[in-house]
Amino acid sequence: MCLAVPARVEALDEATAMAVVSLDGIRKEVSTQLLEQVAIGDYVLIHVGFALERIDPVEAAKTLALFAELRAMDGNA
């Protein structure tokens, strides 16, 4: 349930709590009023025209590092 896709924040308008996000060249205006903080360059999850949450880059990197480790182990096997 709940289709939400990560897109990059390209522009912010704090007065209206709106942002322009982009997903591989597709640009869409979304509301940022559910976010406590957001900055240009952040990746946010988009659902029904709202940014639900920021993607945590540190946590994402940790998960991906684990996958990289797995592939490295496989390469050595």
């Binding site: 289709l3 896709v5 897109a7 997903l23 591989d24 060249g25 597709i26 869409k28 988009i46």
Partner: peptide, 12 residues
């Protein structure tokens, strides 16, 4: 195209 893929992801 990446953009078409992006639009499709966005709209399901």
């Amino acid at each position: 195209r990446a953009e078409v893929r992006g639009a499709c992801e966005l709209l399901g």
